[in-house]
Design a protein around this nucleic acid. Structure first.
Lengths: 137, 137
DNA sequence: ATACATGCAAACAATTTGCATATTA
DNA sequence: TAATATGCAAATTGTTTGCATGTAT
């Protein structure tokens, strides 16, 4: 999902595409990886007129509910990134910069049989470490 | 890891095996699944003379650092369970009761090749849903 | 115009810290 | 006894809420 698609989705669901909301989307589009509420706040302070934390959280929740953002826990903090659900995939996540790389492998096929009497609702497969750039630096 | 092994490990590292610490281990051994700080506190209030939250958190951290407990995020809350690192494996986790079931599959072999210039430090593969018992209830 | 969004301030929850006291090895 | 653990109270951090005002449609 990119910024424009997200704005369309918002409008389509009856939410307003305000300036702050567009800025937030811009931030995540540029980030291309996982970012915290604090990262976002700092960005808004530096590049725009600032934003209050309640608005940050309200919009992070909204975006997550609507499916614009996806969330994960990284280094003990909640992180968000633009959601891409066009095709199912998993991520390598850099612990340093938060950037992600798609992993083609999904292990669920092998698992489903082994859990026949369980109800599977969701799964998470994530690989953590350092990306080539952060590895060098 | 069971309670006695954990106590040995504690002593071996120079920590004291106090009454509260043993109670905490007892709780997690019985639980056989993921539990929150609040779950643990409630247990201590009901079954022992109670415990203060600071002691709860100090010991959860200690146990996690030492490797007695492992942690994960479940339903938006931090959960802990007894760690078993004797053999590498992953979990199905019941969103309702927190109990876990080992999964024999680990997808990492397939992934390592695809990430040759990345430094892989860790990975997480978890399947969430309802266990047979909670499914019925 | 009107429904939704924002900021402010305050509430709330979760977690951590300093320090005095109690406990284990 | 000497080092470590605990409780208490207070501080800190992260997140949420009510309400008045501002803004997009």
């Amino acid at each position: 999902m990119n910024r424009d698609e997200a704005i369309d989705l918002l409008k389509q669901k009856g939410y307003k595409a305000t300036g702050k909301r567009k800025d937030i989307l811009w931030f995540f589009e540029e980030a291309d990886g996982y970012r915290t509420a604090k990262d976002l706040t700092r960005f808004m302070e530096n590049n725009y007129e600032g934003i209050s934390y309640d608005t940050i959280y309200r919009n992070l929740h909204l975006y997550h509910d609507v499916g614009i953002l996806e969330a994960t826990e990284l280094n003990g903090e909640k992180h968000f990134r633009m959601n891409c659900t066009k095709h199912h995939h998993h991520h390598f996540i850099c612990k340093d910069c938060g950037k992600t790389k798609e992993i083609a492998v999904c292990p669920m096929d092998d698992v489903i049989n082994a859990l026949s009497n369980y109800t599977i609702e969701d799964h998470k497969f994530e690989v953590y470490g350092l990306c080539p750039a952060c590895k060098t630096a």
